[in-house]
């Protein structure tokens, strides 16, 4: 079960205090998701530019804000239960090092290569008690469920994942981190498929109106049958839709040992524009991990108090 709805509700301690590092498109979406979660309470949004629109919007939502970045997180009197890192891959390593002694769960939305990787439909969302969880990349979140399912069913020799993100929802850190995106996504594709020969590609589309987030999975899989590929892709999409309802298979072919499965992800709900599926799928996964952590803490507290 990927959804936290219908499970425990927060115990007497109330929702857990979380912080968001980064005020770009991902950080802003996380803040609004935290506001809607019964399990999480926004204790801090930290950026580095006091004039950034993201920081202003967070303040308008009633979140405490700071332009001191990680220093503001460390200065908090009690540690945050969860810190979301929506900065950049280069900054993340430093953030992970500084937060490690505090026992905080760090949920990483940058394409760094640290922490335990989570792809909800494949790994579930239970995090370690502390330390770092990596969400890999938006393309990784969209592709890996399909890659994993194909590799379990067929003799896959090579995998390639190509994602397209609309320009308006590719923030500055994403633009500077394309090399890390490519390396981290390819590495995760290999880790979840066992296929050593893997490649990842990212397009940023300038189209207006913006293009819907999309990922194509190409595989060399001798003998793959088109009907079976369709069935595998369909079952996989169903599982992903448990937490990202806008995830759907839009094309599926298999011939001469070449498989192509294309998925598109539209953002659900009324906060993000529909094309921003790249934010939807990774931010939804990040919040699920944090909620599971909060639920576990609440369950633990009940056991202790009983």
């Amino acid at each position: 079960m990927l959804s936290t709805s219908g499970e425990h509700v927060p115990g007497a301690g109330g929702p857990v205090r979380v912080a968001v590092l980064g005020t770009g498109v991902i950080g802003q979406d996380l803040v609004s998701r935290i506001g809607r979660s019964p399990w999480l309470r926004c204790g801090l949004v930290a950026g580095r530019d006091p004039d950034s629109p993201g920081l202003r919007r967070a303040a308008e939502r009633g979140c405490p804000t700071s332009a001191d970045g990680i220093r503001a997180v460390l200065a908090s009197e009690e540690p945050f239960a969860v810190v979301f890192d929506a900065t950049s891959a280069l900054s993340h390593a430093e953030h992970a090092r500084l937060l490690a002694p505090l026992g905080t769960l760090l949920v990483d939305l940058t394409p760094s290569r640290l922490g335990r990787t989570v792809v909800p439909a494949v790994t579930g969302v239970t995090p370690p008690d502390s330390g770092s969880v990596s969400l890999i990349s938006c393309g990784g979140q969209a592709a890996i469920p399909v890659v994993h399912a194909l590799a379990r069913r067929f003799d896959v020799r090579y995998v390639e994942v190509v994602s397209t993100v609309a320009s308006v929802v590719a923030g500055r850190a994403t633009r500077l981190n394309l090399d890390e995106y490519v390396a981290t996504t390819a590495e995760a594709v290999t880790a979840f498929s066992g296929v050593s020969d893997a490649k990842a590609i990212l397009n940023i589309s300038p189209a207006v109106p913006p293009a819907v987030f999309r990922t194509a999975v190409h595989a060399v899989a001798p003998g793959a049958d088109p009907d079976e590929v369709r069935a595998v892709a369909g079952e996989t999409a169903e599982r992903v839709r448990a937490f990202a309802p806008g995830y759907r298979v839009v094309a599926c072919t298999a011939s001469d040992g070449r498989v192509v499965v294309c998925v598109e992800v539209t953002a659900a709900g009324d906060v993000l524009p529909a094309y921003a599926g790249n934010l939807d799928i990774i931010d939804a996964a990040a919040v699920l991990v944090a909620e599971r952590h909060a639920a576990r803490a609440a369950a633990g507290a009940e056991v202790v108090s009983a």
Binding site: T164, S205, A251
Partner: peptide
Amino acid sequence: RRQAVAGQEDLIVD
């Protein structure tokens, strides 16, 4: 009409 750009060859199949 979809303003496809270089690199989006996967759109052709759809």
